[in-house]
Nucleic acid binder design. Structure first.
Length: 184
DNA sequence: TAGGCCATCTGGTCCT
DNA sequence: AGGACCAGATGGCCTA
């Protein structure tokens, strides 16, 4: 355990530790579920363990049980939602990786952190927007000098492009923008 | 060793 | 009702 401020925080109560009137407290000497109330369930091809205690807690010799659904059922549901959450986070991380690859940045051995990725992506979008607006302003010298109006028309044009063409590459989009700026 | 970053677990809330 | 989403907590790994 690392000596950081985080370490001193009290962990969230687990389902088995809440002050819930629906829970009964019972002691079950010799039960295989005591000593942390572990249960293992096979999910997604691997065995996962559900701990009745939370990250090194010290609940020994007692366990609590909800009256209406069995401990086993709840353990299984918990493990299933853990698995779904894991998959969800993996998808999120894949999206972050795709974003990393989409934005230009100085290549180093160290991969961009999530916060760096988001910040760079934001700046990249801003830069591209500025460039595109510059292009359209060149074609529309006086008519649409208001940046906000231009930006909203740009967005409108982009959405229209997505509807008509799906997610095509940037060059298609840019040529669309170009015809938009010439046509209007 | 402290701090940053991350994966995972967890329970609450929202949505379908 | 069940799944998706979210945020808090925690421990592990890595680096300055």
């Amino acid at each position: 355990m690392k000596s950081k401020g985080k370490g001193s925080k009290r962990g969230r109560q687990s389902w088995a530790e809440q002050d819930d009137p629906d829970f009964t407290l019972e002691t079950e000497p010799g039960s295989s579920e005591q000593e942390g109330s572990e249960a293992s369930v096979r999910l997604g091809g691997t065995w996962r363990t559900l701990r009745g205690e939370r990250h090194g807690g010290s609940r020994v010799g007692t366990r609590r049980r909800r009256l209406h659904s069995s401990t086993k059922e709840r353990n299984v549901r918990r493990l299933e939602s853990n698995e779904r959450e894991r998959q969800r986070m993996h998808k999120l991380n894949n999206a972050f990786q795709a974003l990393r690859e989409a934005i230009p940045h100085v290549k180093t051995d160290k991969k961009l952190s999530k916060i760096e990725t988001l910040t760079l992506a934001k700046n990249y979008i801003k830069s591209l927007t500025t460039i595109i607006l510059g292009m359209s302003n060149a074609c529309l010298p006086h008519a649409e000098s208001d940046m906000e109006t231009n930006a909203s028309r740009l967005l409108q044009c982009y959405q229209q492009h997505l509807q008509e063409e799906g997610e095509e590459d940037l060059s298609n989009y840019l040529s669309h923008i170009h015809s938009f700026s010439q046509g209007s």
